[in-house]
Design a protein around this nucleic acid. Structure first.
Ligand code: ZN
Ligand code: ZN
Ligand code: ZN
Ligand code: ZN
Lengths: 133, 133
DNA sequence: TCAATTGATGTAATAACATTACATGCGTTC
DNA sequence: GAACGCATGTAATGTTATTACATCAATTGA
């Protein structure tokens, strides 16, 4: 199933996350979708699992929350590899970015150690420019 | 209070983590310290909080678990800055390392965006060399 | 056609992780 | 020794995630 062919529950969750101005927890999503028939956590977690597999939603490990992908298809690369998140602890704004040099350094460390990387998490907590001012 | 002057509860938690061959959750720590008088989660969380402040214990966000610091005081630097963790999903082994280039790239991104970084999490999940073989 | 399969869904119960609130004990300071 | 700071103890609650089981619809292929 592609991004263009989501189930009803998946669409509801993705739409909600896309409109949110900050990460949402699974239970916040549940609460906000009660009017649309959501009754149990599993409905949310199942939708999130699929959306993450599709790469259109990311889990923020340090927040136990989820965001819609805001990865910009920039000129430098086309695929969605490892990304980093900068999370403002004041306003909740999340910036998603990637950096080839970081990727390369992590890959080089893994190569030297014989470590087989499956998934990399990079999250910076702090204050965005607006909130730090 | 320095590393050399821990309270009883802090010592018990740090000793347990230091001897563990994999990350431990707060509740696992609680269970293993019941014989030493631990009765409630808060005893564990309070000790962990202080130990983290001292820098002798780290929280692994992607596992909701904790490890004793294994940072090696190498020739290249003396302070305990941002570190990365490679976590084997098979045997639980955790490798803690740091990379100045990664630090620099993240700092440069933050500088450009005016983001004030407070704490950075880098965790690689995968298979260690022994388990990948 | 219709049984078998697959994948999405619904519901309840439970497990796992973390915090709040309040009380107690125990040194140090003045 | 009163006041204070700080570590501790205990109970209750809040938050996040999973397991188990049942139902439903679309697909498939004998
Ligand atoms: Zn993305
Ligand atoms: Zn902000
Ligand atoms: Zn360390
Ligand atoms: Zn391993």
């Amino acid at each position: 199933m592609s991004t263009l062919n989501l189930t009803k529950n998946q669409s509801l969750v993705l739409d909600l996350l896309s409109r949110a101005d900050q990460p949402l927890s699974a239970y916040t999503i549940l609460d906000r979708l009660r009017d649309h028939g959501f009754r149990a956590p599993l409905q949310v977690y199942r939708a999130l699992e699929k959306l993450q597999e599709m790469g259109v939603v990311h889990r923020l490990e340090s927040l136990n929350s989820f965001v819609a992908c805001s990865h910009q298809e920039e000129a430098c690369c086309s695929h969605h590899g490892t990304v980093a998140f900068a999370i403002c602890d004041s306003c909740g704004q999340v910036s998603e970015f990637h950096d080839h040099t970081i990727d390369d350094r992590l890959a080089e460390w893994a190569r030297q150690k014989g470590f087989k990387s499956e998934k990399t998490t990079i999250e910076i907590r702090g204050l965005c420019s607006a909130c730090a001012a």
